[in-house]
Design a binder for these strands. Structure first.
Ligand SMILES: [Zn+2]
Ligand SMILES: [Zn+2]
Ligand SMILES: [Zn+2]
Ligand SMILES: [Zn+2]
Lengths: 161, 161
DNA sequence: GTATGGCCTGATACACTGTATCATACTACA
DNA sequence: TGTAGTATGATACAGTGTATCAGGCCATAC
């Protein structure tokens, strides 16, 4: 599972540490909330975190295949639903794919920066942006309850390279 | 979709005028640009404009059926690609559906206010929002080239009603 | 200890969304 | 008229997501 293709993040950071931290945070959070991070859900979360690029549900499904049984689509989607509900994973709407969140403490919807070159996605989670959108919508009489913000462009690394 | 979402609230506006204007603007624009707004593309645009709610590709496909021949999916998707390319239609990523644009003069990507009650969607196209997002992304070294902004909430009418 | 109820997973089948590919028809222009 | 480019028809398939029912696991109550 240490597929090199999954670790092409150009910053050369220690991604194993990202995964470890994400899993540990998830454990802690679920204990606090009385939510059950079952082995399956934990495994799905780990697979979502296999890189900083969004992962498709069927990619996850395929990689779960290594286990004894061959799970079916609902298995993955249910696990993803759980993880999303607890803020551990975000869905990238424009890609039909899923991305791990690295600060799931408070539930939120971030803003996503999608690099069209390397495919990496980073989350902004900027409160100014959130408030600006809320206000601009309110000026038009619209009460915004959830926000989807996804920007496509070039990340710092790919601009430099 | 819930029953409520299927209900178009009675804003009482003359929607036939919306459609007429949209089609006329499209005609003009395509002539200016040397683009060919063929009967099929015009019909698809008309169907997208059948309401202020995003329309699915297969909904369009179904309604095209009234014609002599029964078109296939690629027919609709190609027409939609053309319309999107010319800014006449936007794709709502979070709904896998398509919405007519009422100011397609300059190509743009707007911000969409999606009412979860009535399903109507209005476009903001606010330059402050656009610039704020560009700037915030740039602060993180990210060069944003396109933006997807979709807010879900309650429209003015549904809040009042 | 057993029963009950809730939650999690397995499994089948299907619905919805979008694309690859090749063939045919139409348009514009030389 | 011939030809190149564009638009549509048609078939088949790929990718994404859900409905539904059945079985398994675990905690609490009796
Ligand atoms: Zn990492
Ligand atoms: Zn990049
Ligand atoms: Zn209207
Ligand atoms: Zn509404």
């Amino acid at each position: 599972m240490t597929d090199a293709a999954l670790h092409i993040h150009p910053t050369g950071h220690d991604h194993a540490a990202c995964v470890d931290e994400a899993l540990e945070t998830a454990e802690t959070l679920c204990v606090e909330r009385g939510a059950r991070l079952t082995p399956l859900r934990r495994r799905v979360l780990e697979l979502v975190w296999s890189s900083h690029r969004p992962v498709g549900a069927y990619d996850i499904l395929g990689r779960l295949d290594g286990s004894a049984r061959k799970p079916a689509p609902p298995t993955v989607y249910r696990a993803l639903d759980f993880l999303i509900e607890h803020g551990l994973v975000h869905r990238i709407e424009s890609m039909n794919a899923y991305l791990g969140c690295n600060h799931p403490e408070q539930s939120h919807t971030g803003q996503f920066l999608i690099c069209r070159e390397c495919g990496n996605v980073t989350e902004m989670d900027d409160d100014d942006v959130r408030q600006t959108l809320r206000r601009k919508a309110a000026e038009r009489g619209f009460d915004a309850r959830s926000q989807t913000v996804e920007l496509v462009g070039l990340c710092a690394t790919c601009r430099a390279g």
